[in-house]
Nucleic acid binder design. Structure first.
Lengths: 141, 141, 141, 141
DNA sequence: TTTT
DNA sequence: TTTT
């Protein structure tokens, strides 16, 4: 298991690229903030913000392209990935990314129920196959 | 692993009891709401609310007693527990509870950094032992 | 948020049905076990097993039908759903289910890398669209 | 929310230090492995291992010191922390760590129920206060 | 550097 | 019974 769950705000406009065969890939930065507090011995632990590099592929990248903007509040679920590369000067660099497996847009205003809008990533029905009203009811057991 | 994570609103005032030897136990109900949406075939899946029975012991119960009220937004992490009992008429009843292992009060307003206030459950420092400023810095490696 | 994560063993053969328009729905029971331990005051807290009713739709139900059997170890991620109904005698019953949004088969033996086998639910590529080798590399930024 | 959950194996013997006022801090590396698979278009996605730097403080560090060894299987829950520093040559370095908030030792063999052993981090009873047999039963409501 |  |  390698699971990450983040709720935070998008730092700037996401970047979206299309690579071979039209596969979309998006990249965004997202801040999570931990409240400061005082320890029992009186030490002040200040507020802390961490900036996450989030990478999204395909359907999630397309959702980002359409609906996610700087300042939006986002829920991201994914995996941590560490990459190492050497730059032109032979200096080693470490990059840590969160590769999203699911997102939820927390800034999206409640919509009229008659329109999905497509703005939310709903992993429970990923196949988008033909579906009936039974879906929202109990299974037939 | 038996892990539950909920973010939702408290339905009514929590109940707190003290049992043997002053152990606090609190109980609250909490609603999580799933947005409605339209499936690809046009079926409207309506909004859905689930009501969770949350049980909290000891320190968490005391936090609830002091700080949690009807309507508050709460993060609860815990375990699902199923109980079965027979009532006076011999009828079997099933009860499902979420026993909290950690909570976070999402309704609490940001406080001046100089005061912890004690309102948040901070699992990362559960021992409350003596602690130094090193804590908020990098470990000495 | 209403999220459940379970790792446990399947109690008996799953049941699978096909409802309107060929939508598959599976149901299985799954045990999670918490180790017993002794409290500081010497009280023995015994081991505890909880049995979860897991419901799976569509693609996940089909994976269950093909690959999941009694005794298998499973990871299930999903949501808690509470249902109430009245039986023929007018007695109210409460049912709690975990509706799966993702599963992973932990009993599946390592396979030769050249064959996917289809036995694992891989949420990161839910669309199954056309995909290139870039996918396993870094995004083009 | 900034939450990480890992299940994996410890790469080498953990290092433990004691800093000011006897506060323990441990550091270990831990591998999570993702199975390889074949995409629909035939592309082989190879197996992938990520190495996480896990930092543990106080009680968790002491558990690590006593019970965790190279090769052990571990569950770690915590937060991602990114740090940047400049080395002696003025070169900027990025470090990513997972600061543990809870761990579970998955390599520990089942013990006779009469002995806690202290080897597991049990977050549900973090206060270690005086506790009665009611704890393992239903709350008094 | 781990493990399956 | 909550909330957006």
């Amino acid at each position: 298991m390698n699971k990450v769950m983040l709720i935070g705000n998008v730092g700037r406009e996401p970047e979206v690229r299309y690579v071979d065969q039209g596969v979309a890939v998006a990249r965004l930065t997202m801040a999570t903030t931990e409240r400061g507090y005082v320890l029992q011995n009186g030490t002040q632990v200040p507020e802390r913000t961490d900036w996450h590099n989030v990478v999204l592929w395909r359907r999630l990248a397309e959702i980002v392209e359409k609906y996610v903007h700087k300042g939006d509040k986002l829920y991201v679920e994914g995996r941590i990935r560490y990459t190492t590369y050497n730059d032109k000067h032979g200096v080693k660099h470490n990059v840590t990314e969160v590769w999203a497996e699911n997102i939820e847009l927390l800034s999206v205003r409640p919509r009229p129920a008659a329109s999905d809008g497509g703005a939310a990533a709903r992993p429970s029905q990923p196949d988008g196959g033909s579906v009936t009203a039974e879906d929202s009811q109990n299974p037939p057991f």
